[in-house]
Design a protein around this nucleic acid. Structure first.
Lengths: 243, 243
DNA sequence: GTCTATAGCTTGATAGAC
DNA sequence: GTCTATCAAGCTATAGAC
């Protein structure tokens, strides 16, 4: 990204509407929100770098200058798109993990249960939250695999909730070594985000039997798959790694 | 990608050197190879779309026009980079699967064994093949998660070997349902390619305990993790999915 | 095969009127 | 806040000399 790094025109008042709202070009809501929605959809389907500010403003029915007015740089626009739903998700996921640990099933806390609590808010949003959430998850998939700034960006937005999960897993698997837990989470992260990437890959591979967009099918299998992987790698009876 | 789709200047003779090689600007080998090497490294570290033809030619110590002479378009350059090592890998992986099935261990064919045969050529190349192979795998990770043309491209280069693996897995798990096998492979693919993405993510998350570049550590865990996942999702005793 | 030179276009970003 | 108008820089790709 050759996004120019001029001064950040940051800290603009987020919502300050005059009582009698003046004329607006954006359809229903705020122009700012319309820009975010347009950018989200375009980033998701065509990649983060290929989408131009002009395309975004065209889709949002606003002028390009307005995009820079609100977000200063293209990078700033991306960060706003990425952060908007991250905060919502992180809150839900922390709560889901805590709620599960507070009252697990009769058998006590299980790996499946923890993984499921961690994944549930994501799949709920993607299945019931509308297409915007699916778009957002496709963006996450790209960021997660971006070699340049992906690691830094994912860490900045999501590490707290992941550390929360890993701490809970550690309580459920007290003998597990930290390295094994981190690598196991890493595999989870890759499996999850590719599922979210919506590339149509599994559709082709399976000759149409499976669908990239069928998050219910993915959800029905992923928790069990991942939990089994965690147990196999982190369980004390595994002759862990080759040392 | 707004790469212009002019006529493909395809089918250029791949190697036709006059006996007394004329002056060359590229360091040791062919200029064509130097361009591929430079492009590979740049694509891997800075993403596929952000790298310009000029950057590639600069790093390869050739002129931009030469890049278009050999590869016609930027897209053509990418396809050449992507295909160069794919063919090598596919051959090795088919052979590894066949060899394992022909003479598995005393206990017969196992899921671990098949997964390991499928993954071994990749990890061998990344550990012992030099940094170029690591770069190549980082490119695969990006392609795999690209929403625009990732699914099509991955399918074109890798579906045969994957179908070969899945057929072998089906023989080892005759009761498994096709959907379960495809989804299980999909999760494998995501876990594998994120590991290859080299984003530094696990380094940050683990506070330096684990390293993105440590493919031996990943390799030591991935086969067992994935095999356990396959068994959990595809085994007949699993109350498969929610139907 | 390799280079120079450049056409033709798109990009991100800004200045300034309203 | 929103628009018009524009700029400088970068891009892919090609034509043509050697």
């Amino acid at each position: 990204m050759s996004m120019a790094d001029t001064r950040a025109r940051a800290l603009r008042p987020k919502r300050k509407r005059k009582p009698g709202r003046p004329h607006k070009s954006a359809s229903t809501a705020d122009a700012r929100e319309a820009i975010l929605d347009a950018a989200e959809a375009l980033f998701a389907h065509h990649g983060l770098e290929t989408v131009s500010v002009r395309e975004v403003s065209l889709k949002a029915h606003v002028d390009t200058a307005l995009v820079h007015y609100y977000f200063a740089t293209k990078r700033g626009l991306f960060e706003a798109v990425f952060g908007r739903r991250a905060e919502i998700l992180n809150r839900q996921r922390i709560e889901a993990i805590d709620a599960y640990e507070a009252s697990p099933g009769p058998g006590g806390v299980t790996i499946e249960g923890l993984i499921d609590a961690f994944l549930r808010p994501l799949f709920d949003a993607s299945v019931s939250g509308g297409p915007q959430w699916k778009d957002y998850f496709a963006i996450i998939a790209q960021v997660n695999n971006n070699p340049d700034w992906g690691g830094e960006t994912m860490a900045r937005f999501f590490d707290p909730v992941i550390r929360h999960l890993i701490a809970a897993l550690k309580r459920a698997l007290p003998q597990a070594k930290d390295e094994d837990l981190f690598w196991s989470y890493h595999f989870l992260s890759g499996a999850l985000t590719l599922t979210f990437a919506q590339t149509g890959r599994i559709d082709r591979l399976s000759d149409g039997l499976c669908k990239s967009s069928d998050f219910e099918a993915a959800s029905a299998r992923l928790s069990r798959y991942i939990a089994a992987g965690f147990r196999a790698v982190c369980a004390p009876d595994a002759k862990a790694s080759k040392r």
